[in-house]
Amino acid sequence: MKQPCVYITTNRNNTTLYIGVTSNLVQRIYQHKIKLFKGFTAQYNVDKLVYFEQFEDMESAITREKRLKVWKRDWKNRLINEMNPCWKELYFDLMC
């Protein structure tokens, strides 16, 4: 899936959120899952994809990512709940 995306991942208990941007969502989430890069997501086990948005161009995706990162937690939760009310893992759905 090569397309600019903004995504939100969380940990198993849905207590920590991470917002990122990528041009290859499947590859990027896989990298989170195998903890390829040491940092926030590896340290806090934030590898469960619960939300994503696709964009026509990377500039739009980056702009959206920056906006989401300053949102309050309640707003982010509401956004996730609109698309994924059970907060289920979406990564495996992308593989089909």
Rank of each mutant, 00 (worst) to 15 (best):
N14Q: 08
Y7S: 01
I34S: 12
L49M: 06
V50H: 04
K38E: 10
E53L: 11
Q3S: 13
C5A: 13
F37E: 08
Q27T: 11
T16R: 15
L25S: 08
P4V: 03
N24F: 00
Y18E: 05
F52W: 05
K35G: 14
V21R: 01
L68A: 09
K38A: 12
M1D: 15
N45E: 10
E65R: 02
I8N: 10
G39M: 07
K66Y: 04
I29P: 03
L68P: 00
F55M: 11
L36G: 07
N11Q: 13
T22N: 10
L17Y: 15
G20F: 00
K48Q: 10
Y7E: 05
V26T: 11
M1V: 13
K66L: 10
C5E: 00
L25D: 00
K35T: 05
M58Q: 12
I62C: 04
K2R: 15
V50D: 06
N13V: 08
D57E: 11
T63R: 13
R12S: 12
Y51K: 07
Y51E: 06
H32S: 06
R67I: 06
N11A: 13
Q31V: 01
E59H: 11
Y51M: 04
R64G: 01
Q43F: 13
L49F: 05
I34N: 12
T16Y: 12
F40E: 10
E56V: 05
N14V: 06
Y30R: 08
K35Q: 15
Q3G: 05
Q54H: 08
D57P: 00
K35R: 13
F37A: 07
C5Q: 02
I34E: 09
I8P: 03
F52I: 01
L68M: 15
E59A: 13
K69V: 01
A61D: 00
T41V: 14
A42C: 09
I8F: 07
E56A: 14
Q31Y: 07
L17N: 14
W71N: 02
K2A: 04
K72V: 02
Q31G: 08
Y44F: 13
V21I: 06
I8K: 03
Q54M: 07
F37H: 11
S23T: 08
T15N: 15
F55S: 05
N14T: 04
Y44H: 14
K72E: 14
K33D: 03
E65Y: 02
N14E: 11
R12D: 13
Y7D: 05
K35Y: 09
L49C: 09
I34K: 13
R12C: 09
N14I: 07
T16S: 11
E59R: 15
L49A: 05
I62K: 14
P4A: 15
T22M: 03
Y18G: 00
N24V: 00
F55K: 03
K33P: 00
Y51I: 01
L36S: 09
Y7C: 03
Q43R: 15
I19T: 05
S23L: 02
I29C: 11
K48I: 13
R12A: 15
V21M: 00
T41Y: 01
Q3I: 04
R28D: 01
K2L: 09
